[in-house]
Design a protein around this nucleic acid. Sequence first.
DNA 1: ACTTACGGTAAGTAATGACTTACGAACAAG
DNA 2: CTTGTTCGTAAGTCATTACTTACCGTAAGT
Lengths: 100, 100
Amino acid sequence: MTYEQAQLDALGDGTRRAILDHLLAGPMPVGKLAADFPISRPAISQHLKILKDANLVTDRVDGTRRVYQINSAGFEFLRDYFDRFWSHALDAFKNKVEEQ
Amino acid sequence: MTYEQAQLDALGDGTRRAILDHLLAGPMPVGKLAADFPISRPAISQHLKILKDANLVTDRVDGTRRVYQINSAGFEFLRDYFDRFWSHALDAFKNKVEEQ
DNA sequence: ACTTACGGTAAGTAATGACTTACGAACAAG
DNA sequence: CTTGTTCGTAAGTCATTACTTACCGTAAGT
C-alpha cells in the first residue's frame, strides 16, 4: 500500500480527524487526548497507531507518558501528492473534455 | 456534515479511489465502469452515489445510460481546503512547537 | 521492593459499511 | 405494445473496523 492510500484511509474516519484537530492545539499525551472524547483510551490508542502508520503523527516517550504530535511532513506529503497527481490528472482530464 | 468531511469519507475507500482513477480516462457510463471491476454493477452505483454526494463526480443522462465524470470543482474545493485550513493550522502548530 | 500512573496490545463484541440478489423505472428499437 | 438494455434502489448478507474489557509492561515516587 502506498503512503497516500494509508493517509487517505486514515483521514476517512471522523474520530481520527477529530483527534488531529485536537493535536493542532499542540502535542499531547494519550490520556489528555482521550479525556476529550466519549470513547475509551485504548480506542484512542488504536486510532493513534493508524495515524502513526500513515505518518500523520509522531510520538515520543516522556517518562510513563507517550506524547503524540502532528507530523507536518506527512501532511505536506499528502498535499504535494494532491498537487502533483490530481492537478495534472485533472488538467489532462479538463483538456480531454474540452476537446469534445 | 461539511463538504470536506463527506469528501474525505468518500476518498477513504480504495474502490472509490480506483473508480475515480478510471474516470480520469474520461466520462464513462456505469456499465463500462463496472466491467473493469470485480464487483457487481449495483455496488459501483452505490459508490458513485457517495462520490456524487461528495461532489467529486457529476452525472448526466444519455438515453438509458447515465454518464459519470470527474468533477474538477469538487477536487479544487478539497485542495483549497487543504491549502487554507491545514497549511495555516500547521504553520501555527509549527510556530508553537518551535517556541518551546 | 511496593504502589500508582500511563499506555500498548490481545481478544471478543458491536456497529458500520461494502457487497449481493431481486426488482422496477425509463428509454430505444422493432 | 412488446422486448431488450441500462441503471437506480430496496433488502438482506457478509466482512470490516471501531469499540470494549482485561491484562501486561514500563517508569516514577514513596
